[in-house]
Design a binder for these strands. Structure first.
Ligand code: DGT
Ligand code: MN
Ligand code: MN
Length: 579
DNA sequence: GTGTGATGCCAC
DNA sequence: AAACGTGGCATCACAC
């Protein structure tokens, strides 16, 4: 450890930064890490910036030097910046110093790509360094307080975290090349900036409007609770006063099952689908109560707590490699699962003088299936500009194309994707309200129209069983662990889904990169990403230009992945989030 | 008190 | 329980 002691320098004098910048310019790779006083740039500040070259590690006390502008050029270009979980460091440097790290090599993302969607192992720096490079790190300093006087130990640990990134990158880069993950890793690394900036931008929730809705829904929920409660008989021997409080917990599936039993109704479960078949007023009331309770508990009462006090916006956390298929996940809060109804979405609003440009890929996974299966009728349908969700809706509900309602088209999506990914006749007929035989018939007809679709899906499932591995078009790797599946059928269905949902994620992530690039310099920024939909907030007076550029960038990303099938994007401009 | 699995439902 | 897939999250029941 003495050796590394001599190799790092604590920088407290701003005048030294220009020299450091100059020394860094010649490097091919530099390890970069931050120590901060909190986990979000809205809650804390950067204390240390560590930059490592093979020769030396600069540990810069940002409390002391203040201004980092002498380093801006070298951090925004030149050497590859190697970081572990780069989104974190990117956000702080962007928010605090207006610095956009580039280009990026993220050792965490690299390790996740190499793991092939296996989320079992930890992806902490310590775990990845150990696993991928055999380097053992002590993590005791990780959660220390970085706001006060720093011990020599803290500075030592800080330097070490940056320095270790260089040999770690070498190992990971070898692995990426060997496993043919270079293309997808480049996309992932480039998407970091888009995702970090999207989180920093946040999205505005009109809290007054939201709370207004909350009041209305709470009143209805409470009324419904009383009505529902009254459906069930008083338990024996209950004293009059006890009846004042709620005697039955309506949120308990167990208690609900017992309560229905007291009405002479046996329920296999209390899901929507089961309750819909029960011919009793209590079943209908329960469904209505559930819907209101869900909206109140999950959304209306919860989301205002996430509004940032300073800017009135929600800054969600987007997880870049949480999902094996490559889709983003979103937490705290999840703004990818806001109810689709206007009454909710209209509460997400652009700032005064700004508007939203909302762009969504048309029928994206259907197009991908056409591409990867090469089925002639399927490919031709898209070359003709057909809307296959609408076609399915018209067929299944026995209406003309013009008569298909929004709800019917939406229901047809579930049917189309269900059929693609191995849905059974029972489940399909249940949704359609037909008998099982009719379900069987519809499935057969569907695949008879598209024979190469069936063969592609079966081939994919069998390959996964045989090779335990699949790839998306951009090369993202999925490993199917031997022990993970006790149900082979489930694994086959997952396999059929993976290359297609995965290709959709390939496109979306490339689009994240392109959209950010093409909007640079405009007063426009990405504020939400719902898998195949982008929400951009921009000055009202440039909305036309922004809509053009956003949809062109998304289309370009689609065309980079899909060669036979055209990509289409539906764009809407609105001050509220609605389509 | 905190943690975990089951249940259920929102989005794509 | 049903042979669509990917998620997050609230609530309950029960363990510790
Ligand atoms: N397996 C499965 N995938 C779904 C389901 N709903 C949505 N997806 C996937 C496939 C879709 O192509 C993708 C994007 O969802 P969208 O709501 O945007 O639908 P899509 O793009 O197909 O149609 P659109 O033209 O945008 O209305 O998400 C579903 O119920 N099951
Ligand atoms: Mn879409
Ligand atoms: Mn969509």
């Amino acid at each position: 450890m003495e050796k590394s002691l001599s190799e790092h320098k604590l920088v407290t004098d701003a005048a030294d930064l220009a020299t450091i910048a100059e020394a860094l310019q010649g490097a091919e790779f530099v390890g970069v890490d931050l120590e901060t006083t909190a986990l979000s740039p809205r809650d804390g500040r950067i204390r240390l910036l560590q930059i490592a070259t093979p020769d030396e590690t600069h540990v810069i006390d940002v409390f002391e030097v203040g201004d980092l502008s002498p380093l801006k050029d070298v951090l925004e270009g030149g050497p590859v910046k190697v970081l572990h979980n780069a989104k974190f460091d990117y956000s702080f440097l962007k928010a605090e110093h207006g610095i956009s790290l580039s280009p990026i090599f993220d050792t965490m993302l690299a390790a996740q790509l190499l793991a092939g969607g296996n989320q079992g192992p930890s992806f902490s720096l310590e775990a990845v360094a150990e696993r991928e490079a055999g380097i053992e790190l002590d993590k005791s300093a990780r959660r220390e307080d970085w706001s006060g006087k720093l011990s020599e130990g803290q500075i030592e640990y800080a330097a070490r975290d940056a320095k270790v990134l260089l040999p770690l990158r070498e190992k990971l880069a070898e692995g990426l090349e060997k496993d043919e993950l270079l293309r997808i890793s480049k996309i992932e690394f480039a998407a970091v900036a888009s995702i970090a900036e999207m989180e920093l931008a946040g999205v505005k929730l009109d809290v007054a409007r939201w709370k207004e809705l909350e009041k209305v829904v709470r009143k209805r929920r409470d009324e419904k609770a009383l009505e529902l409660d009254a459906q069930f008989p008083e338990p024996e021997g209950m004293l009059p006063l006890e009846g004042l409080g709620p005697r039955l917990n309506l949120n308990s599936p167990q208690q609900i099952t017992d309560a229905f039993r007291s009405l002479g109704i046996e329920l296999s479960d209390t899901k929507v689908w089961t309750l819909l078949k029960v011919d009793h007023p209590a079943a209908k009331l329960l469904l209505e109560y559930r819907e209101l309770q869900k909206k109140l508990g999950t959304y209306l009462e919860t989301y205002p707590k996430f509004v940032d006090g300073k800017d009135g916006r929600i800054h969600a956390n987007f997880l870049q490699c949480r999902v094996p298929t490559g889709r983003l996940a979103c937490t705290n809060p999840n703004i990818q699962q806001i109810p689709h109804e206007d009454e909710f979405r209209r509460c997400f609003v652009a700032e005064e003088g700004y508007t939203f440009v909302i762009a969504d890929y048309s029928q994206v996974e259907l197009r991908i299936l056409a591409e990867v299966s090469g089925d002639p009728a399927f490919v031709e349908a898209f070359q003709n500009g057909d809307d296959l969700h609408r076609v399915t809706a018209a067929t299944m509900y026995g209406v003309t194309m013009d008569e298909v309602s929004k709800d019917q088209r939406s229901a047809a999506k579930r049917i189309n994707f269900g059929l693609m990914y191995g849905r059974g006749a029972k489940s399909l007929s249940a949704q359609l309200g037909t008998d099982e035989e009719r379900g069987r018939q519809l499935i057969d007809e569907y695949f008879a129209n598209y024979p190469k679709v069936r063969s592609f899906l079966q081939k994919t499932a069998s390959r996964a069983v045989r090779d335990r591995t699949l790839r998306t078009i951009a090369g993202r790797l999925r490993k199917f662990g031997d022990s993970a599946f006790d149900d082979k059928g489930a694994m086959r269905r997952e396999a059929m889904n993976y290359p297609i949902q995965g290709a959709s994620a390939d496109i979306a992530k490339l689009a994240l990169v392109y959209v950010r690039e093409d909007l640079e310099g405009l007063d426009a920024r990405l504020v939400n990403c719902i898998h195949d939909e982008f929400v951009v907030e921009c000055r009202e007076d440039i909305a036309g230009e922004v809509a053009e550029r956003t949809s062109a960038a998304m289309t370009r990303a689609g065309s980079a992945i899909l060669k036979k099938v055209p990509t289409e994007v539906e764009v809407v401009t609105s001050r509220e989030w609605r389509k």
